[in-house]
């Protein structure tokens, strides 16, 4: 069960990456995409792209974009799974509860005030700190006695999102034309114009975050028992919480720092995995990472091919699809929990 699910998701991700890299104004058939990659890593197998500009297009535009889409999808879905674990609530998600926009505000400030002390890492570090602060606020305000009530969590998210969107509006008011455009583009969420430099920042953040999430997986299972019972079976709850909150902030920052706010991936993917494979985090975390990567790569493909010569904001698309899903989840959890608890 475990092996086959991960194998299926890995296969799905490979298909997403190959198809995603081939589609666009310049069409490259999947076999040629594979051939190009294999030749680049020293295996002379498969056909090389026939179009004269195909090789450059693939390596300078398409590959960084699909790889970043996969990394961001993996980071968001993993962040969602971990967050739901520590909140003990399947409705927790970085964007829904305002962690993504917290990261966005911090990153937006860096853009507007033109801070660049850490080079290409400046925005990522700012996003991490903003996300960390937001996660802590949500956590402290919405959790009581080891559980988070749905209604408290969602209301806390509303308040935090209201404050952060006000802060983003203020930043747009302060910024010049260019900063303004950058922030708008960014609150919508987009992978447009991705370069390898962005991948180089996001990849290590996502990798570290997912690796730590895997290490925490077994203890996240135990946390489902509630704080006290988790302690009774040997979990140092305070330490686990702190580690998990840092992981959520790190993964959210990885997703937000170049691509802006992409909502609901962290909600939909872990939920689907739970429906198929049960709630155990040892499988949930890696399956969410792979599933999120595949989903966002496909979503990005859709975003840039749905309308000719237009690159739709991917954050808009995920919200369009994820919003109704969220409503359905709220109704369902209301029914199963017998009220707003």
């Amino acid at each position: 069960m475990k092996g086959s699910l991960l194998a299926v998701l890995t296969g799905l991700l490979v298909v997403a990456l190959v198809v995603g890299a081939g589609q666009g104004q310049l069409h490259v058939p999947p076999l040629e995409v594979l051939g190009s990659v294999l030749h680049r890593i020293g295996i002379d197998l498969g056909p090389l792209p026939t179009h004269p500009r195909a090789e450059d297009t693939l390596w300078e535009v398409r590959f960084p974009r699909v790889v970043l889409a996969a990394l961001v999808g993996a980071a968001l879905a993993t962040a969602g799974a971990v967050m739901q674990g520590i909140f003990g609530n399947p409705l927790a998600e970085p964007a829904v509860v305002g962690v993504s926009s917290g990261a966005a505000v911090a990153a937006g400030s860096v853009i507007v005030f033109d801070v660049a002390v850490l080079g290409s890492w400046t925005i990522a570090v700012a996003a991490f700190l903003g996300g960390l602060a937001a996660t802590l606020v949500v956590y402290l305000l919405s959790r009581a006695g080891g559980r988070t009530e749905v209604v408290t969590l969602v209301l806390t998210g509303i308040a935090l999102n209201a404050m952060t969107s006000a802060a983003l509006a203020f930043l747009m008011f302060l910024g010049d034309q260019q900063a303004r455009e950058e922030i708008v583009f960014w609150t919508l969420g987009s992978l447009n114009g991705t370069r390898w430099a962005a991948v180089a920042v996001v990849a290590p953040l996502a990798a570290i975050g997912i690796a730590v999430a895997l290490v925490l997986a077994r203890r996240l299972d135990l946390l489902a028992l509630g704080d006290r019972a988790a302690f009774h079976v040997g979990v140092d709850v305070e330490r686990l919480r702190l580690a998990a909150i840092v992981v959520v902030a790190l993964l959210t920052a990885a997703a937000v720092c170049f691509c802006g706010i992409i909502a609901f991936v962290g909600l939909v993917v872990p939920h689907l995995v739970r429906m198929v494979a049960g709630p155990g985090h040892l499988l949930l975390v890696p399956a969410s990472a792979l599933g999120g990567a595949a989903l966002l790569t496909f979503a990005d493909l859709w975003a840039r091919t749905a309308v000719d010569n237009a690159d739709l904001p991917i954050g808009m698309l995920t919200s369009l699809v994820g919003g109704p899903f969220f409503l359905w989840l709220i109704r369902r959890s209301r029914r199963t929990a017998g009220g707003w608890s």
């Binding site: 003990g88 609530n89 399947p90 559980r147 299972d221 946390l223 489902a224 028992l225 509630g226 006290r228 019972a229 302690f231 009774h232 079976v233 040997g234 979990v235 140092d236 709850v237 739970r274 049960g278 709630p279 155990g280």
Partner: peptide, 21 residues
Amino acid sequence: ARESAQHRAVQLQQQGLAFGF
């Protein structure tokens, strides 16, 4: 935490579980 869990087990009055294990 873990060491004490090897010495004593507890059943609480309130049972709850966040997910469908």
